[in-house]
Nucleic acid binder design. Structure first.
Length: 466
RNA sequence: GGGAACGUAGGCUAAUUGGCAGGCUAUCGGUCUUUCAAACCGAUGGGUGCGGGAUCGUACCCCGCCGUUCCUACCA
């Protein structure tokens, strides 16, 4: 591809499940590369596997992309809607002699493979129906619908400069004449990818490591079609937290699960950006900064293990600086799911302000805020430990002082301090029982701030229920 | 079996490309505080998968092993 062509990248998931973390990173890198170069990001749904593709999975992928904020410029294109185009190209290839009909049945093919494996050979199509000058092809069997095979070069090798892995070379002898159209006429993956990448003028193919082995086939196909070969960047895989590979059975979860788990999309994106790519020692950066910095040169070739601990830290950093009103919208939703209403209680944004730099996800934030809206009940253990006779007496005194105190943090703090002093107690000896009564737990942000946000009525009400 | 890749502290990674192995996270400790966090400061942890080779000198080049992954479908 000439360097002067405008950059066009694509994300091409197959809709057989949700958008998981590996797909999300591939999408992020493709998106960022297009943005970085003022190019175009195309979304393409590879749904030619009719048996496994579902509309629900398409929707799940679109939802995931939307949650992450990775907007496509073109598409989504659906391969199933491009069947006519594929058939035209297959016909052209048959006429040009770069593809041919193969009448070997599935059973015969299976048998061939079994024999090859028994001889410890690489299982591959033997070229029985491949036309050669002077070769007499077998008689066409009456009951077999043919597949169409690509006439792959038999000599030489395919070489490309992978943007992540460097020079990769495959001998054509390792490749066989793969099927580009099934017996029922539907085209297969490698063929559709090539036609689409060509038609959509994709300049940079950024995708998972698992496609490295498809690349020489696709390059040969592109060459046979006389199409330009795009630049390839193959991203290594993401392993689970335990170092095991991710699979549907093990660790692979939808990106939407991160929403449920209280992660901000910005934090997830920042984390993914840093998983396999680096910009010196920079860890915390905005998407604007990422786009300005992103390049293919600094992508790591090795597989990366997902680390939830670091994601938690990043998420905490993002929550800390997030807008209170935005956090309130989210926390409100989470509380509503628990059947908790915030209308009667203190201002949610102010309560969030007390906790946003103390939590690492939005569920923790909702947990922290929860007792401000629902009367908290400390466990018997906590009550026994903190609400001693002495402490109760102090709290009764405090309630009297608070009934007429100026409702302002420093004054409230002084009120607690002086009550303690009058009882011959240290401040924590009053402040901690007070926390247990107000919030049901012995730890909280500064007690004066908690009192101020709660408001006089609610504080006195809860002290009354002591 | 054949082919293609990948191995830097528990995890993510950096190293001006052959010249002092650095950062983040986690863990531990300290400071601050009104409790718990957060924040800040400090510490533990690697000699770069293992073994050879070339070089004055290698994380980086070469060879061999080991380990992990991917492909070897009428899946994508």
């Amino acid at each position: 591809m000439t360097t002067s062509s405008p950059v066009r990248t694509r994300f091409a998931p197959s809709p057989t499940g949700f958008l998981h973390i590996g797909g999300a990173r591939t999408a992020l890198f493709s998106w960022a590369y297009a943005r970085r170069h003022g190019g175009t990001f195309v979304l393409r749904i590879e749904d030619t596997d009719v048996a496994r593709s579902t509309p629900a999975a398409v929707q799940a992928i679109l939802d995931g992309m939307q949650w992450l904020g990775l907007a496509h410029d073109e598409g989504p294109f659906y391969q199933m809607q491009r069947m006519e185009r594929y058939k035209v190209v297959i016909q052209q290839m048959l006429e040009a002699g770069t593809a041919y009909h193969c009448y070997m049945s599935k059973d015969e093919l299976d048998q061939l493979r079994a024999e090859q494996e028994a001889r410890k050979e690489k299982p591959r199509y033997n070229g029985l129906w491949r036309p050669e000058p002077g070769k007499v092809l077998p008689v066409i069997p009456p009951s077999v619908e043919p597949v169409v095979r690509f006439r792959n070069p038999v000599e030489g090798s395919v070489v490309w400069e992978d943007q992540v892995k460097g020079r990769v070379e495959f001998a054509n002898a390792e490749l066989d004449d793969f099927i580009i159209a099934r017996a029922d006429g539907t085209p297969t993956y490698n063929f559709c990818v090539v036609v689409d990448d060509c038609d959509m003028a994709i300049t940079h193919v950024i995708r998972g490591d698992d496609h490295v082995n498809n690349t020489p086939r696709q390059i040969n196909l592109l060459t046979a079609l006389g199409a330009p070969v795009p630049s390839y960047a193959h991203l290594s895989m993401i392993l689970g937290d335990d170092g095991q590979k991710l699979s549907k059975r093990h660790g692979a979860v939808s990106v939407m699960q991160y929403d449920d788990d209280g992660y901000l999309p910005a934090a997830v994106l920042n984390y993914l950006a840093r998983l396999g790519w680096s910009h010196g020692d920079d860890e915390l950066f905005s998407m604007e900064q990422f786009v300005a910095w992103f390049d293919l040169d600094h992508i790591t070739a090795s597989a990366a293990q997902f680390n939830t601990e670091k994601l938690n830290w990043l998420n905490a950093q993002y929550i800390k600086v997030a807008d209170n009103a935005q956090l309130a919208t989210d926390v409100h939703r989470r509380l509503a799911q628990r059947g908790v209403s915030t209308v009667a209680g203190p201002d949610l944004e102010r309560v969030i302000g007390l906790y946003k730099d103390r939590v690492s996800n939005l569920n923790e934030l909702a947990d922290a805020v929860h007792p401000f809206y629902v009367m908290a009940h400390a466990s018997e253990d906590l009550r026994a430990q903190h609400l001693t006779e002495v402490a109760r007496a102090a709290l009764v005194d405090l309630a009297q002082v608070l009934a007429s105190a100026t409702w302002q943090a420093t004054d409230l703090g002084n009120a607690v301090k002086e009550t303690a002093k009058a009882q011959g107690l240290k401040m924590p000896q009053v402040a901690i029982p007070l926390r247990v009564v107000l919030l049901g737990q012995p730890q909280s942000p500064a007690i004066d701030a908690v009192l101020e946000v709660f408001g006089r009525d609610e504080v006195l009400r809860r002290l009354q229920a002591l």
